[in-house]
C-alpha cells in the first residue's frame, strides 16, 4: 500500500473503505488472503473482529455473539458503542455472527439460511482463527477461483469439510463465512466447494 494511502487510513472513512475492499476481494477471490487495516487500540475485542465489525455492522444489522464474546460485558459495551447493532440471542435471526477464536465454529444450521425467494437474508459468520495458513490443508474450487486453490485456516473443527458440504448443497441458501487472524482475512462464500487434502 502506498504511503499516501496509509496516511489516510487513520480516518474512519478510508479505513472502512480499505477494509471493505479487503472483504470484497476475500469473498470474490476465495483462497486469497487479504490484509486488514486494524486499530491496535480498538478496545477489549479482537482487533480483526473489531475492524470487520466497524466495516459492516451498524444499527440496521442484528448481531449474534459467540459465548465468550457474549459473556464479556466490555465486548458488548464496545460493540454497542461502536456499531449500535441490536444483539440477538437467536442465531437464526442474526445478519452477522461474531465468533471468538476461543469458541468453536457453531453448526451452520443454527444460523439464518435465507429463503429460496430471498437467499440473501442469511447470516454472515465472522470467525477469528488461530491462523490462516497452518491449519489442515483444504482444496477449494468455485466462482472466483480459476482452477483450484489451497487454503489452511486453523481452528474450524474436525467436521468442517462435511458440514460445509451440507451448506454448499443448500445453495442458493446458506451461510457465508469470513475468517480472520493476525490482521488478515479470508472469505468462504456459500458457492465454495471444499475438499480435504491428504497430508
Amino acid at each position: 500500500m502506498t504511503a499516501f494511502a496509509t496516511q489516510h487510513l487513520a480516518d474512519p472513512v478510508f479505513r472502512a473503505q480499505a477494509n471493505f475492499r479487503a472483504l470484497m476481494d476475500a469473498l470474490s477471490r476465495p483462497g486469497t488472503i487479504q490484509r486488514l487495516v486494524v486499530d491496535e487500540d480498538a478496545g477489549d475485542i479482537d482487533v480483526d473482529l473489531a475492524a470487520i465489525a466497524l466495516t459492516l455492522i451498524d444499527h440496521e444489522t442484528s448481531l449474534w455473539l459467540s459465548p465468550s464474546l457474549a459473556d464479556d460485558h466490555k465486548v458488548r459495551e464496545w460493540l454497542a458503542f461502536a456499531t449500535g447493532a441490536p444483539l440477538v440471542d437467536a442465531p437464526e435471526r442474526a445478519a452477522f455472527a461474531l465468533v471468538a477464536e476461543a469458541d468453536p465454529l457453531p453448526d451452520h444450521r443454527a444460523f439464518g439460511q435465507g429463503t429460496q425467494e430471498y437467499p440473501d437474508r442469511s447470516t454472515t459468520i465472522v470467525k477469528a482463527c488461530g491462523g490462516l495458513t497452518h491449519g489442515p490443508r483444504l482444496a477449494c474450487s468455485g466462482p472466483g477461483i480459476k482452477a483450484s486453490a489451497t487454503v489452511a485456516p486453523a481452528g474450524l473443527g474436525p467436521n468442517f469439510v462435511e458440514r460445509w458440504a451440507e451448506n454448499r448443497a443448500l445453495f442458493p441458501r446458506g451461510v457465508d463465512l469470513i475468517l480472520c487472524a493476525g490482521g488478515a482475512v479470508m472469505g468462504m462464500p456459500r458457492t465454495l466447494t471444499i475438499k480435504r487434502l491428504e497430508v
Binding site: F20, L23, M24, L27, S28, T55, L56, T61, A95, P119, D120, S122, T124, G144, F171, P172, D176, P189, R190, T191
Partner: peptide
C-alpha cells in the same frame, strides 16, 4: 457494501 457481499456470494 453488505448488498455487494451478498451479491458476490450468490
Amino acid at each position: 457494501r453488505r448488498a455487494i457481499l451478498k451479491a458476490i456470494a450468490i
